[in-house]
Design a binder for these strands. Structure first.
Length: 418
RNA sequence: GGAGGGGUGCCCGAGCGGUUAAAGGGGACGGGCUGUAAACCCGUUGGCUAUGCCUACGUUGGUUCGAAUCCAACCCCCUCCA
């Protein structure tokens, strides 16, 4: 990696820490300096929303667009029906077409926050590989493209090799995944003049296949670019918050909880995350990551607000910051915390504490709630709940007209009588 | 088709007739220390309108006072052979 990037896009790409591997950095840099690159990243639609694990690649597409190039978001409506075996020991359960379509519309939402879609030369477009994969004819496909793959080579790919070496089954369906994904690149190149595929480092093998297939089938010079696999400084996997996955869609994770996720970044990750997940100037980031000890918390708040603003908008981000400030720094039951409605009549009657914790979504079951209370981790209006059968009722409504229910120090819910 | 090995809780994995809601580890959650961090220490970890009841060791049936543990059939996975 001795090449020093000159193009706007790759200069920033490298400086902000997105680069892991590239098939031909020098040639890509030249291309980026001379013309508008059309590039794509593929997304499986196995869940109704993307999550923070996808964020680095979304930011990468955003950077691409802001550098004057054109992003294509490829939704894997077709490949999801096959299932990417990469990094998995077991086949995924096959999703129904209805599930897949519902997931596609959920996923679309997040992209609209980060990219500008439209018909212009650098406007992003979204395509679904089901549009061409579903129509493939078996024999013609095998004759046109199957001849460019040898089983010998396919067996050397990690996605296959790992599965086999661990004596886990891999079906022929899954084995075909890499052909189909490679074919996507060829299809996008032919129809949209797409030259570059980007993705996480775990997709390197799949990306290379596409690049090679394009060269063999069409003689095209295609490029692949990957980002590093992100793990936390402590070695843990990224993307868990108190209570589950960090989804991008607002209906699955509130802006407040999203803000909290970034606020709780480990010290050692702050600089890296500021570069990857915000658009603050690099000089500013360098200053922030110099902060030591407790002062680093200021940098974390900025990270949280900037990252949240990109996804949920500036207002929501500042609102979340303010709610957090009042909750954590003043210990108040700040408005803006996630809220649920409970009918006034039920509150008048009184609800058992364990039951309310479950209804509020703070605990998955009544038993879990009882344990939480036993461990002195449940609080009602900031007072520890002593017994699991305690009754919460209208008397507990504070002067703000709500009841604040907490599980641990960080998870709070406001109960609103309705 | 044949021979052998195997299917245990969120995951890995012990148990191989009763004291087993099932060792141990991981993960997760809560508490402590801190800075809403990491590391570390402690606790919890099937469900329920709960001193009891229900569900659970691939499935179904059987033996037994009693089965995750023994038997039978079936399903699935792995390895070798054809």
């Amino acid at each position: 990696m001795t090449h020093t990037a000159k193009s706007e896009f790759l200069k920033n790409f490298v400086a902000r820490g997105y680069l892991h591997q590239c098939t031909d950095l020098e040639a890509l840099d030249t291309l980026a300096g001379n013309e508008t690159i059309i590039a794509y990243t593929g997304y499986d639609c196995t869940a109704p929303s993307l999550h923070v694990g996808h964020l680095i690649s979304i930011m990468m597409l955003r950077l691409l667009q802001r550098s004057g190039h054109k992003p294509i978001v490829l939704i894997g409506g077709g490949t999801t029906r096959v299932g990417d075996p990469t990094g998995k020991d077991e086949s995924r359960p096959l999703l129904t077409d209805a599930d897949i379509n519902a997931n596609i519309s959920g996923i679309r939402k997040a992209f609209e926050r980060f990219l500008t879609f439209g018909d212009g030369p650098t406007d992003a477009i979204m395509v679904n590989n089901a549009d061409w994969l579903d129509k493939l004819e078996y024999i013609p496909f095998l004759r046109d493209f199957g001849t460019h793959f040898t089983i010998n080579r396919m067996l050397t790919f990690d996605s296959v090799k790992l599965r086999l070496s661990r004596e886990q089954p891999m079906t022929f369906l899954e084995f075909n995944y890499m052909l189909l994904q490679a074919y996507d690149f060829v299809e996008l190149n032919r129809n949209y003049n797409c030259r570059l595929q980007m993705g996480g480092s775990d997709q390197w093998g799949n990306i290379i296949n596409g690049v090679e297939l394009g060269r063999r089938a069409d003689g095209s010079h295609l490029f692949g670019l990957t980002t590093p696999l992100l793990t936390l400084a402590s070695g843990k996997k990224m993307g868990k918050s108190e209570g589950g996955a960090v989804w991008l869609n607002e209906d699955m994770l509130s802006p407040y909880d999203y803000w909290q996720y970034w606020r709780n970044t480990e010290d050692a990750d702050v600089g890296r995350f500021l570069r990857l997940f915000t658009e603050l100037p690099l000089a500013e980031i360098e200053r922030l990551e110099q902060l030591g000890g407790q002062e680093l918390n200021e940098a974390k708040k900025i990270l949280a607000t900037e990252a949240t603003a990109l996804l949920h908008g500036r207002d929501a981000a500042e609102g979340a910051a303010e709610t957090a400030r009042r909750t954590f720094e003043e210990g108040a039951s700040a408005a803006g915390l996630p809220t649920i409605d409970i009918p006034q009549a039920e509150l008048d009657e009184g609800i058992a504490a364990f039951e309310l914790l479950r209804r509020a979504g703070l605990c998955a079951s009544g038993g879990e709630a009882r344990r939480l209370i036993k461990n002195r981790g449940a609080r009602l209006n900031d007072q520890v709940i002593e017994t699991d059968t305690a009754i919460i009722g209208a008397d507990d409504i504070s002067t703000d007209g709500v009841i604040k229910l907490s599980a641990g120090k960080k998870r709070h819910i406001l109960i609103h009588p309705a």
